[in-house]
Design a protein around this nucleic acid. Structure first.
Length: 857
RNA sequence: GCCGAAGUGGCGGAACUGGUAGACGCGCUGGACUCAAAAUCCAGUAUGGCUUACCCCAUGUGGGGGUUCGACUCCCCCCUUCGGCACCA
């Protein structure tokens, strides 16, 4: 009987669905395991072969663990908000909800064809109001929280209000302190504005990449893409929603150390957070009481600071600029503001203008000129630097361009020909630091700065607050109302979800607002509590929002009262294994960790980190080893593969191609190879009449076949546990090759082998299991165990070497003693030929491995 | 430029803590079955040499050095590819 994969796969997929085979519930008696795939954005082009790679890997792992007795949570859902559906709506006026639904249906159908053991009852969809209700709820939790530095955690904003009313800002670090009476005297708006400076979600005027053509702001990484397509992107300050992720910089950095993640991903996150340690130093402005703060990692070089540079946007710029320089300075500021950050970075050489103002170097007491230049960024440190050309490449270049003084304060080694010197050496021209090396000099100068009150030890991070608003329709509405008194009012929990309004026509608003601004009935409201007129926030959330917490929703996806119940969260979290693309190494994985920590601080989740073990699947390239793309015509469609060779072959091949994390090219021949393998398996078990093959019977296995069986159980189990699927499949192929050679096949072992194969090729395995006489699914059969004593070979080949080169091999019983091995080597003809009468200097004997005889001539 | 990962047959890849390099699969070659083909099965397959049976010898894991009885594996230098960052003071 032929291997009718199409029929078999349909049959078992129906069976699993009918019997809810993979439905999971909390079960305190069983050990839980949470295995998660990064959920896909359901694009219009359907699934590509890259998706099933990760999904198959997690599926094999889940099926294996279920058989090992674990209670496995393995869900799937849709990250369905996003720009493509909205752009399509603008062209066709078809509601994004409709396109999204269609795309989801396609994806769901395609994924189901692969026989993945998801608990579909937990499916989530980020665009479903029942889901985004809780995205909005979490947004409000952040809005209504502040980060308390004293305890290093987020707390409800009321705790800050209470504290201000009780003791003012005595224990809170603010520029303008006040007492409890002052707080009580403040008006509503004043209090509102003050608190806004603490909230984890806040509105700020920030320079963004505004694209008029698209009617939205773009992320820095999106700018290049659209400018290439002919759109113009300009830098302009706009009011945007921000999330105070910077408050968590240190914890995001520290807690990453405990994670079992790819080193490269951890490294990328570390670089993204970009911690650097140094000092803040205040430079007094000449003839003024102002002090300009700079950040430096090299406070030891302060004696070489011969100028100062401010970012063009630095608010001090105009305060230090005398009237006769204002024109040049403002001109420069204007130019700089137009450039995007990419353009600023791409420019070779240094530009800048002298402000006409001077500061006093607190170490040398000398006057140094204050310049502005766009190589100094407002978003990092204090937006101002001390220029130390002798010990900094950029400052050197700047000083050379504008003819500024250069004073070496670290002695370069003799014969040093370079420009700036970044290496270590004794300090020179540095007063109290002279002779000290960098580390000591840093320590000494910081002590001095702190003592003289010119500065202090400081840490800064590259990480910036998260720009959270998008001027788009197809995203979660931000649940905030702007009242006519200038304050903002968050919606109450009972008012959630705030659903997207229906629109007549999908088009940009024509202003800097999102298309939501066109839904005037929705936008304009009257506040029930105060009777004030109000306007709803028209920005929506970025696509990251929904994916920031979806793993929590899976634990309790039907819950209408909570985002998930504490009990279920405690049982299932954290995610034990998380698999997805490396393209999310930073943003998604950092944003999720951030939200998770906020929820942790507020007591809503029980773990500090959401994802314990993370692995990325490597990209699958086209057969030509190039990236798959429509234009290259090398795209492989999973539907075709499933139709031609079946889902089991598809799954098996994707896992057999190579290590999960590697980038690897598709191979049609390779699929045929694993398809042949499955056919061989089939013929091993099934006779022409469709019944169990008569070669399978209750006989005692012969020793070597039994050994191979135990070796296979061991290898497959270990490999699956460590996600090395390619080598597990190799071992199964070896087993099948041997089994094929046998006339009579021992039923017990053959049955167990079906169980080994089942996580990889579940459909054929279920069918064979049934043909072997079982009536239930094998999904919960116990995973085969191996007998360690039966794994070891009784005869083993030992290598005989002379001077490290293999000269002969002998078959000996396992654990033949060393001296016997040595004798065998010395008696061996070819070994003796190579000894060639030389003097034996050394004999190395490794039991069960080799004998190496070292001779001198 | 900086950070990270990786370079093994014609191809995808294997080799656990240094101990038989090339498992398994693809491809290729030869054979069996067949009128023939497909499918299937069997055998061979790193490169070169010598014999021209089996053998045996040399070379071989990006290149060059080193440590070691012994290195794909450890150390140093260099090259290439991929991923990320990019004036972060």
């Amino acid at each position: 009987m032929k291997y009718e994969f199409t029929h078999i796969e349909k049959k078992w997929q129906d069976y699993w669905q009918r019997h809810a085979t993979f439905r999971t519930e909390v079960d305190e008696r069983k050990k839980k395991l949470y295995v998660l795939d990064m959920f896909p954005y359901p694009s219009g082009s359907g699934l590509h072969v890259g998706h099933p790679e990760g999904y198959t890997a997690t599926d094999i792992f889940c099926r294996f663990k279920r058989m090992k007795g674990f209670n496995v949570l393995h869900p799937m859902g849709w990250d369905a908000f996003g720009l493509p559906a909205e752009r399509y709506a603008m062209q066709t006026n078809i509601h994004p909800r409709i396109t999204t639904e269609e795309n989801i249906s396609t994806f769901r159908r395609q994924i189901k064809l692969l026989g993945l053991s998801y608990d579909w009852s937990r499916e989530v969809n980020t665009t479903d109001p029942a889901y985004y209700k809780w995205t909005q709820w979490i947004f409000l939790k952040l809005y209504n929280s502040w980060y308390d530095r004293r305890v290093e955690k987020a707390r409800p904003i009321e705790t800050l209000e209470d504290e201000l009313a009780l003791e003012g800002t005595r224990n809170v670090d603010v520029p303008a302190p006040f007492g409890p009476e002052d707080w009580k005297k403040k008006g509503k708006k004043e209090k509102h504005d003050f608190l806004a400076r603490f909230r984890l979600t806040y509105v700020a005027e920030v320079p963004v990449n505004w694209c008029e053509g698209l009617g939205t702001v773009l992320a820095n990484e999106e700018v290049a893409e659209w400018t290439e397509k002919g759109y113009t992107v300009e830098r302009r300050p706009m009011k945007q929603w921000m999330m105070r992720i910077t408050a968590y910089a240190e914890r995001l950095l520290q807690d990453a150390e405990s994670l079992d993640w790819p080193v490269s991903t951890l490294e990328m996150q570390r670089n993204w957070i970009g911690k650097s340690e140094g000092a803040e130093i205040e430079f007094p402005v000449k003839r003024s009481n102002d002090r300009i703060k700079v950040f430096t990692t090299r406070p030891d070089t302060i004696f070489g600071a011969t100028f100062m540079v401010l970012a063009p946007e630095n608010p001090f710029v105009l305060r230090v600029t005398p009237n006769d320089h204002v024109v040049e300075v403002t001109d420069y500021q204007k130019q700089a503001s137009k450039k995007t950050e990419i353009e600023r970075g791409a420019e070779r050489g240094k530009s800048g203008v002298f402000t006409g103002g001077y500061a006093i170097n607190p170490a040398t007491k000398k006057e140094i000129p204050i310049w502005i230049a766009d190589y100094v960024l407002m978003g990092y440190g204090t937006g101002a630097i001390m220029g130390v050309p002798a010990q900094d490449e950029r400052d050197w270049e700047f000083a050379k361009t504008f003819g500024l003084d250069i004073i070496r304060t670290v002695q370069p080694p003799a014969g040093f020909q370079g420009k700036e010197y970044l290496g270590d050496g004794p300090a020179i021209n540095s007063g109290l630091l002279d002779g000290l090396h960098i580390e000591q000099a840093k320590k000494r100068i910081i002590e001095w700065l702190e003592q003289e009150e010119w500065g202090r030890r400081a840490v800064t991070y590259k990480l910036r607050d998260w720009l959270f608003s998008r001027q788009r329709y197809w995203g979660e509405p931000i649940p905030i109302v702007h009242l006519e008194d200038g304050t903002m009012k968050p919606l109450k929990d009972a008012e959630l979800p705030l659903e997207l309004p229906e629109l007549e026509k999908f088009q940009p608003s024509g202003t800097t607002e999102s298309p939501l601004a066109l839904a005037t009935d929705w936008v304009n409201i009257v506040d029930k509590d105060t009777g004030m007129k109000g306007r709803r926030e028209t920005n929506t959330m970025p696509q990251w929002a929904g994916s920031c917490w979806y793993y929590l929703r899976y634990t309790d996806s039907e819950n209408a009262k909570e985002f998930c119940s504490g009990e279920k969260e405690k049982y299932w979290m954290p995610v034990d294994v998380y698999i997805g693309g490396a393209e999310h190494a930073v943003l998604h994985l950092l944003y999720s960790r951030f939200w998770h920590k906020v929820l942790y601080d507020l007591g809503y989740v029980s773990t500090k980190e959401p994802f314990l073990k993370l692995r990325h699947q490597g990209t699958i390239l086209g057969e030509d080893s190039r990236k798959m793309s429509k234009s290259r015509g090398n795209v492989i469609n999973p539907d075709d593969i499933v139709a031609q060779h079946g889902a089991d072959s598809m799954r098996l091949f994707e896992m057999f191609m190579g290590p999960l994390e590697d980038v690897k090219p598709w191979s049609t021949k390779g699929v045929e190879g694993v398809f042949r393998f499955l056919n061989r398996v089939w013929r091993l078990y099934v006779a022409e009449d469709g019944k169990r093959d008569p070669s399978i019977s209750d006989i005692q296995p012969d020793g070597s076949f039994e050994r191979l069986f135990h070796q296979t159980v061991k290898k497959v189990g270990e490999d699956v546990a460590s996600l090395r699927f390619n080598t597990a499949i190799s071992q199964m192929m070896i087993f099948v090759n041997e089994a094929t050679k046998l006339q009579k096949r021992p039923r017990a072992l053959m049955e167990q082998f079906v169980l080994l194969l089942s996580p990889f090729a579940p459909h054929i395995a279920e069918e064979l299991w049934q043909k072997l006489g079982h009536t239930n699914t094998l999904a919960y059969e116990p995973w085969p165990v191996f007998d360690a004593t039966k794994v070891v070979e009784d005869t083993i080949e030992v290598v005989l070497q002379v001077n490290g080169k293999v000269r002969s091999r002998v078959l000996v019983p396992m654990n033949t003693p060393e001296d016997e091995l040595e004798d065998l080597a010395l008696k061996d003809d070819n070994v003796r030929r190579h000894l060639d009468g030389g003097r034996i200097v050394k004999k190395v004997v490794v039991k069960n491995k080799l004998v190496n005889i070292v001779v001198a001539r």
